[in-house]
């Protein structure tokens, strides 16, 4: 469904992605992990063209995503994106955050859009907060609204860029439960996360990145129990024993 072919990306002289070749199947749940600055956020941001690439091709359902004349806005509306910092629109209530894009892009009537948005908010457990503004919601609640907002365009693919990294620890669970719910529905998900327990439970496949390269791709069982690449072994031992120095 999502296919990377020899993808390279530079930020100036710094190469953020190196020869990425990867295929993500429809309905697959892929967790991308790796140390800070390894290129994992950059990788998923290239999928909806938030980041440009300098060489190679990315295709979705067999179609190149960088052809001349592509309607980028229509293209993006088919891919849900959830940010680390939530990025809810602070001047709009939770439900208005969710109805903005469907009303502007699908020309849904306010009544229909509200009804659909309310169903989505209910799905993330926040129907009772529909009229609350982002400033009145906790971080976990904001992130759940952000997920509902991304789902409102009914995208077949959802991308999560460290969805729980900006949350207080007690709010991580509620967001992960919502994402697990999407997994059960069979959506195609790419999740950048440091939540290894979550990866172990829901991922079909784990990609390990370091310095812009995908160094290891494995089932969660293989990755966590029998990591092959030395950097992956190092990374896993680092996150298991956070107080170990050298």
């Amino acid at each position: 469904m999502i296919r990377f072919d020899q993808v390279n990306k530079w930020f100036g002289a710094y190469q953020a992605l190196v020869d990425i070749n990867e295929t993500i199947a429809e309905g697959e749940v892929v967790v991308v992990c790796g140390p800070s600055g390894s290129g994992k956020s950059t990788l998923i941001r290239t999928i909806n063209r938030l980041e440009a690439i300098q060489s190679g091709t990315i295709s979705i359902n067999g179609e190149d995503i960088h052809p001349k004349g592509l309607d980028v806005n229509a293209f993006r509306s088919h891919i849900g994106f959830v940010f680390q910092q939530f990025n809810l629109f602070p001047h709009l209530s939770a439900i208005d955050n969710c109805t903005l894009a469907p009303m502007a892009l699908k020309r849904l009537s306010p009544a229909v859009a509200r009804e659909q948005a309310l169903a989505l908010l209910d799905r993330v457990g926040l129907a009772h907060k529909a009229n609350a503004y982002p400033s009145e919601l906790s971080g976990g609640q904001q992130q759940r609204v952000a997920i509902a907002r991304a789902l409102a365009m009914q995208p077949p693919i959802m991308l999560f860029d460290e969805p729980t990294s900006a949350l207080d620890p007690e709010m991580v669970g509620e967001v992960l439960l919502v994402i697990r719910d999407l997994v059960r529905d069979g959506m195609t998900l790419v999740v950048v996360t440091h939540e290894m327990g979550f990866a172990r439970e829901v991922a079909h496949r784990v990609l390990f990145m370091d310095q812009g390269r995908v160094l290891e791709r494995a089932t969660p069982d293989d990755f966590f129990n029998r990591p092959q690449h030395p950097r992956a072994q190092q990374f896993l031992s680092d996150i298991r024993t956070p107080f170990a120095t050298a």
């Binding site: 680390q84 939530f86 809810l88 209530s93 503004y133 400033s135 900006a166």
Partner: peptide, 15 residues
């Protein structure tokens, strides 16, 4: 007005 309140700043995590 509550729609103009600054959002609670999320914890800054490294990218």
């Amino acid at each position: 007005r509550k729609d103009l309140q600054p959002l609670p700043q999320p914890l800054k995590a490294s990218a």
